[in-house]
Design a binder for these strands. Structure first.
Lengths: 231, 231, 231, 231
DNA sequence: AGATAAGCGAGACGGTACGTCCCGTCTTCTG
DNA sequence: CAGAAGACGGGACGTACCGTCTCGCTTATCT
């Protein structure tokens, strides 16, 4: 996962921190340039789409030679995913409230916040670009999706231990159903993507909180309770 | 909605079928060229991605002047969506089996078939392109999504009338949850997109068929039945 | 010379004036369109160069179908030369003052007036276009140059008869030397093209008028001494 | 005058030969590409006219990117004039025989040789193109015409010092009359452009050589009689 | 009067070249 | 040896005209 899409140059990050602590000869990589490139990438990506973003523009905006970009990233996708990862890491953790419904809907609401922020454009750009660049998609999965999913597993397993969810549940199916509902409205934009929508999705998939039951009793009873036992 | 993304030329389709039956002066649009362009677009799109597809290549493949393409479609996206819609219309209908679960899962399996076929690339291309071109996304929604959704509403309403689903159900939430699960795995490709996955999603969201109960009794009872009553 | 560059259609000009006086069936050529095309051609040529002039623009400006232009003129050059000839005929005649110097310099001054007028652009355009289109050059010679040259021969022969010029003079050499001096400054634009320049050229080639002698005594005395005193 | 029509890029010719001898950073301009472009330009110009010449064809023939052409020359004319100047510099000098007539007619015959060679097409192309592109014409004057004219002045001044020509002669008028006669027949092509024509023009304007008098006695006697006998 | 014929405007057609943009690579000098 | 600068061959962009074509309509002569 490390350096997923980056080039394998001499002075790249992670290359000189071996046990010996020796550095290679020659000028070391400019951390300043690296960050300027990230900054410009994210900045430009908020104005244009993935396909409208050009290395030329990034290099110009970052006051950096085009070759410096190509030296460290093999293509646009690798750079974008790196820039995204470098900026998005610390957010989006799962709470532990003692209720799956609350844990999941809170985290999904956080995620919704990200999608609505300027960084939402970047997520869209990554997924768009990933449709024609498998490595970009891989990077998105490894660097963004997987870390969150690991946490989500824990949240769901806690719910199973508490008895809130059945034991033989396929966690991936649950998570893809929950998050798929978000991604769908985010990517296709055919309907409102609101906190209330998230609550309804969670209710539908996880069973809602007590106060929700009165408003949707029939679905639960009919679709799953009675139907299940009575027929 | 008609001619959503097409140029506003004189001899466009739908322009001469008014009540008067008169044609405009000037050479009429070449239906032959139009179809050759569609054919080449779909053909090339199965080999390359949306961004790798070029108008130049389409025109060359269709033995058509580049200007003829630009005369009728303002951009690549408009052309692709038109070509896709012209080829995808007649499929993907909903059966009426008397069971929501069966109706929905059958149609979703059909849809899965499309996504797995060469035309799946086109759906991916449209959604990717749509992230930077709102009109493309609009066209996708109007020409592809909406017709299917109208049918889906009917299917769900039949289920409500039969008492399979509760009356105050938000149909859009149900549909986005079901199809979002498909789109998510289709676009992010992090996990298998199989008929079995579809069945599990339908079970989770709609409640499974009778024969499925034995295999997943706990989920239903725990997640929704017992949980609902017990908490 | 007739219809030098025009196409050979049925209803073209000069086609129905045969002995029989019969017209062909079918709609006759529109004289109105013909003149509108000429008008637009000359108008547009004053703004742009020959190569910058387009049939498309002429047709649009003349409110005429592009095919109507192509029906009657095989190419841009033919049209331009036709338009020019239709507008320039009546000018540029030679006076008969009894002095070659005066006859020639007066006519050359008239010509200078044409070159300085908006029509000068057209002469330049014709000669420029003629460098890559032999027919255009031929048309320029036949329709514009030759008629004037015929008159010029007469003027020079009168001078020979009067004894102003020697008998075995090559008239073409004299005329090309005189007019070449004008064309050179007109086309290369390296120096002033004034009435005074014309007088000096005439003096140099033909011998100047008596009153010019004081200002340029040595050249005159040497080059044309006897001539000057003898006439 | 230097770089008359060339673009103002960093690594253009003449840009690094300052006193310091330092080069600018960045890849230097490819001399190889420059010469290949010139070669192809001249080669193609001998087959087609100025307007038929395309940058696209030049770039293809020179195995060079189209952008490389546009990087250094703003338009076709600038390129053509540059290519022409780079190939025509060393010729067309004036002899010093002790006779204006001989000096001028010899040089004019050399010039005639150029006009008749494949390079003649280029001169025609330049003057044609120059009618719609003032900069092209300027370049032609500065790079081609002026150097020759400087030499011509010296030739004529020598003649004045020798007493062959009068002192107050307007040299430009003489030269434009002589060369105008050539340019006129070259550009309009209405009559033969031969060495004999040149001799006749020189005789007419400068007074012929002694041995020429027998062949054209009347003109000479009248026009230049005294001069001829008195010298 | 009707048939036949040709010109008219409009405007779409397959093409070609335009001049621009960016690609990803390269070559050079500077730090 | 990295970095900036910037030129390189390449290729697609979207536009402008080319000269041709197919329309519906108009204006004539010929039967």
């Amino acid at each position: 996962m490390r350096q997923l899409l980056s080039g394998g140059r001499k002075h790249g990050r992670d290359s000189d921190d071996g046990a010996n602590g020796r550095r290679l000869p020659g000028r070391p990589r400019s951390e300043q340039a690296r960050q300027a490139i990230f900054r410009s990438t994210l900045k430009l990506l908020q104005r244009s789409s993935f396909s409208g973003l050009t290395i030329e523009a990034i290099a110009a905006d970052a006051d950096v030679g085009k070759a410096t970009v190509y030296r460290w990233w093999p293509n646009k996708g690798a750079l974008v995913v790196d820039a995204f990862a470098s900026s998005a890491e610390p957010e989006l953790h799962f709470p532990n409230t003692g209720s799956v419904y609350r844990d999941m809907s809170l985290q999904m609401a956080q995620f919704l916040g990200v999608l609505r922020s300027p960084r939402g454009r970047i997520v869209a750009a990554l997924l768009a670009g990933g449709q024609s660049d498998p490595e970009l998609l891989t990077a998105f999965r490894e660097r963004f999706l997987r870390p969150r999913r690991e946490e989500a597993y824990k949240t769901l397993r806690r719910a199973i231990e508490r008895g809130e969810l059945p034991e033989n549940l396929d966690l991936d199916v649950v998570l893809d159903t929950l998050y798929g509902a978000i991604y769908m409205r985010f990517l296709i934009r055919h309907d409102e993507l609101s906190e209330n929508y998230i609550r309804e999705v969670c209710s539908l998939v996880l069973g809602g909180p007590l106060r929700k039951q009165t408003s949707r009793p029939k679905l639960r009873r009919k679709a799953l309770g009675i139907c299940a036992t009575g027929s």
